[in-house]
Nucleic acid binder design. Sequence first.
DNA 1: AGGGTCATGTAACGCGTTACATGATTAC
DNA 2: GTAATCATGTAACGCGTTACATGACCCT
Lengths: 175, 175
Amino acid sequence: MSGYDLVRFFDGSTGWIWAAPQSQIYPMLRRMEQAGLISGDEEARGPRLTRTVYSVTPKGHGELVAWLGVAHDAAPPRDPFMVQALNFDMIDAGDAAAVLEAFIAEQEKAAAEAEAHRDRLLRRDTALLKERLTRRDPEDHERIARLKAHVFDGIARVARVRAEWAREGQRLLEE
Amino acid sequence: MSGYDLVRFFDGSTGWIWAAPQSQIYPMLRRMEQAGLISGDEEARGPRLTRTVYSVTPKGHGELVAWLGVAHDAAPPRDPFMVQALNFDMIDAGDAAAVLEAFIAEQEKAAAEAEAHRDRLLRRDTALLKERLTRRDPEDHERIARLKAHVFDGIARVARVRAEWAREGQRLLEE
DNA sequence: AGGGTCATGTAACGCGTTACATGATTAC
DNA sequence: GTAATCATGTAACGCGTTACATGACCCT
């Protein structure tokens, strides 16, 4: 992919899992190329405009597979919303309920989006999945699609649980 | 609290929600004092050792209450574990199952700790809650304890859902 | 001719991580 | 005396955010 492709990539479904701002893409591509993890090919896109398409090198692929295969420590938690919720007793109950309402809307939107993406994956209806499956045994296609769909199913389920939890919080505030 | 108190504070139950490394505490205290959000009092702790105890100023309290009372945009997601899970098809199924196993253990440990803390809060059995309640109407004590306990109940529930989801993932890998 | 998209960058600032570093006081 | 705890800092480095900045190409 080119830097520009990656910007759009992180704006799409991958963005539910890992966000990356445009300003980080280009410096990071150069650092990764220097480290030998990816290599760039210049492509002409008109007389004056070029784009650089990067590919993962064998070294980069090896490091990725190694990283994928071992468990990593969880990142230290940093959850501003829970800090808010822990201190709802400091503010007006109506304000707290409104904060929860916004949280519920956000979680249900996230859940709906994750569910929609899960279903697209099950139908093998996304460009990225189709492209990946071309290099795989057709016997495995069903299994791979279900594995990837399961990830988005998990994201959706967590969001639903959080929304339900927030609704209970609203009931507690009314007491 | 003093800087040292805060280091231990973030190592305790608050650490499930917001972690802060020791190296950030002291510079941040000075920046917050400069901003007028907190003020420090020097206390002698022996002939040569002093500690600085910080209190929230009215300005700091006001900003906190204002922040607590409005909904904030969610932080962009950045979930390394989900990146792993999305690419389990690139690695050996046994390795993937082992990564999930570690995840399950971690989530169940987190859930158990959150549940234990929830129950301590319901029994009003934590130093911080007791201290906070001294400045509140006894009629509200039950309600406040239940609100705070509900936060940890939510953390526990999410962790249980994640663990159950990971177990399903292990079953999918076996196919 | 103009707007939308393609394409690539830079700069400033703050936060988070890891590691290093020092010394006083208390309890055994 | 010595180990644990109390107490406070600094430095280097990378990542993330916001904002700024430029220009080519394509379609109507």
